[in-house]
């Protein structure tokens, strides 16, 4: 979908939310929902940062680590990709305390979602690194670069461009997964919606607003990643032309 359409959708979503805010029936719910949205955004941002760190480390460990590190990274990736995010969330929330490690719900949310998306991200990073043209690697060897130099100066800057679109999808997955944290007692946007729904039974206005709010957040993310992609691929003879 073109970036113009996406921006159009974002404007429309925000306009509908604003129009709803002028109605008495909807205005009631906005402060609480916005409060929830702030928590959702906090978890999404911190989770994404953790996901990037885990993704890069796991990918490098699987590509260049000594055997034990490689296995460890593979086990991490398989476990977090093979089980469902909700199971991971519940496991960290309910089971970990029985082993004497008690994290508060917010930390559990960030860690679980970050590790989950990080596992998918590591495959993205690995794929992007391996997709850099062979000539580039050979040229680095010919120039007698160390592995660190090669990665930092030649390979990663090129791999970065290929990583942007898939990471954009992962960030959206993470944003959507934050709705799960409502099930471990955190009062995020989904939790507030549930709570208000139980108190007022005004299901349609509440959930319409909430869906629009999630849509607006996803669209901001999508548009941001598109712009980043356009910027990063400037001057590179690959990828879509901006």
């Amino acid at each position: 979908m073109g970036i113009r359409t996406l921006i159009g959708m974002l404007v429309a979503a925000v306009a509908v939310i604003a129009a709803m805010a002028t109605q008495e029936a909807y205005r009631l719910f906005l402060p609480g929902l916005l409060q929830g949205a702030v928590l959702t955004i906090e978890i999404a941002i911190l989770g994404s940062l953790l996901a990037i760190v885990m993704g890069v480390f796991a990918a490098l460990a699987r590509l260049y680590g000594p055997a034990p590190v490689r296995w460890l990274a593979t086990v991490y990736v398989e476990i977090f990709r093979g089980t469902s995010a909700l199971v991971q969330l519940f496991w960290l929330f309910f089971v970990l305390p029985q082993f004497g490690v008690s994290l508060d719900a917010f930390l559990v949310a960030v860690v679980a979602l970050g590790l989950n998306v990080g596992a998918y991200g590591s495959e993205v990073v690995r794929g992007a690194i391996l997709s850099v043209a062979r000539g580039q690697w050979e040229a680095c060897t010919a120039l007698n670069m160390s592995r660190a130099q090669m990665l930092r100066r030649i390979i990663l800057p090129q791999a970065f461009v290929a990583m942007i679109p898939p990471w954009g999808n992962l960030f959206i997955e993470l944003l959507k997964s934050t709705a799960l944290v409502s099930l471990i007692t955190l009062s995020d946007l989904a939790f507030k919606a549930q709570q208000m729904n139980q108190n007022t039974f005004k299901t349609i206005p509440i959930f319409t607003l909430v869906l629009l709010m999630y849509l607006a957040m996803s669209l901001v993310l999508t548009i941001g990643m598109r712009l980043l992609e356009r910027r990063a691929s400037l001057g590179l003879a690959r990828g879509r032309a901006g």
Binding site: M9, K176, S177, A179, A190, L211, S218
Partner: peptide
């Protein structure tokens, strides 16, 4: 647009929506 709407919002909310609406 419909596909984009469905893909951009959390499944959990959609489940609640169908169940309650």
């Amino acid at each position: 647009v419909l596909v984009e709407l469905i893909r951009s919002t959390p499944l959990l909310i959609q489940i609640f929506f169908l169940y309650f609406v």
